[in-house]
């Protein structure tokens, strides 16, 4: 049986999730040049927000067709609140501070958010099960589940919505302006604080969409889920060209596919039998990142960055 189509599908799905989370990194970075390392945790809190809706608010046996949109709203509210709260109370006071100070804040925030969930969310010291969409469909040699379909649709809808928003809406254009030159755009009457809050909020909401997809696909969530996903999403954002929203999505997909294919096929290459398998997948993913950056230092779709760094 040829596994390539299935493995490609696996990679695309994983990559879409990376891409959704990477949007949060890239938008915030594009506007304030801040690496929000706590973004993975915003993703995680979104998952718990959605679980709260399902497990504690909705009556048992609610149809998933009704439950999923409500979970998206619940997760979205939590993620957006956490993201905006982090901006308002942790990052904004540091906007004039040296570059590394917000980075340490982010590490602290990341630890604190994980621990809040672990300590205070019922049963969250272990993984909690999450309602999953298990129905599966065979398309040729590829098996995909309802959750996978949800993920792809959600990613496409979110991306096109965002693209429209940034290009056409007033706020979106103000966002572009702020990204280019915050001082001048402020002089032109743009409320940059508001723009920054919106960037955090959009990032938070996309993270929540990714979180709900994650829960529906894997059937469980845990307080640690944000760390590795966040790291990968950040890698994806950089690979695609940080600051560029299409780059984030492309970077996510490339990373996801690369990881999956590396895990599946590297050990078939003569001389590398021992360097394959899931264990080494992250190594190859990072190697790919380094290669991409060597040949395209601004990332796949990145713009000029000379005066950014």
């Amino acid at each position: 049986m040829n596994t390539l189509p299935q493995q490609l599908a696996n990679g695309l799905l994983l990559g879409s999730m990376y891409g959704l989370i990477a949007i949060g990194y890239t938008m915030v970075y594009g506007i304030v040049q801040l690496i929000n390392f706590a973004h993975g945790e915003i993703f995680m809190t979104g998952a718990f927000g959605a679980l709260t809706v399902y497990a504690y608010i909705l009556p048992d046996g609610t149809s998933m067709v009704v439950a999923v949109p409500l979970m998206l709203i619940g997760g979205g509210i939590v993620s957006v609140l956490v993201a905006v709260g982090a901006e308002r109370f942790a990052y904004r006071p540091l906007r004039q501070a040296p570059r590394l100070a917000p980075l340490i804040t982010a590490i602290g925030l990341s630890l604190a958010l994980q621990e809040v969930v672990r300590n205070f969310y019922p049963g969250a010291d272990k993984d909690r099960s999450f309602p999953s969409l298990d129905g599966s469909h065979d398309i040729g040699s590829v098996t995909i589940t309802d959750a996978d379909i949800f993920l792809v649709v959600a990613a496409i809808v979110c991306m096109s919505g965002l693209a429209w928003f940034v290009r056409k809406s007033r706020t979106g254009r103000a966002m572009q302006a702020t990204a280019q030159d915050p001082d001048t755009s402020q002089l032109m009457g743009i409320d940059t604080n508001r723009i920054i809050v919106i960037a955090f909020a959009i990032g938070g909401f996309f993270a929540a969409v990714a979180a709900v997809s994650y829960g529906l696909k894997y059937g469980n969530i845990g307080y640690r889920m944000g760390f590795l996903m966040g790291l990968k999403a950040f890698t994806a954002a950089v690979m695609g060209g940080i600051g560029n929203i299409y780059g984030a999505m492309l970077g996510g997909v490339v990373l996801g596919v690369a990881e999956t294919l590396a895990s599946a096929y590297i050990n078939h290459i003569p001389g590398m039998q021992q360097l394959g398998g899931s264990g080494w997948a992250n190594v190859w993913a990072f190697c790919l990142l380094i290669l991409v950056l060597l040949f395209r230092p601004q990332g796949l779709l990145g713009e000029r960055v000379a005066d950014r760094a």
Partner: peptide, 18 residues
């Protein structure tokens, strides 16, 4: 077959396909 995963990994779709 044999494979090795990393602790903390969450997506095992590639492994599952194998």
């Amino acid at each position: 077959g044999t494979d090795h995963v990393n602790t903390g990994d969450t997506d095992f779709s590639s492994l599952v396909t194998k």
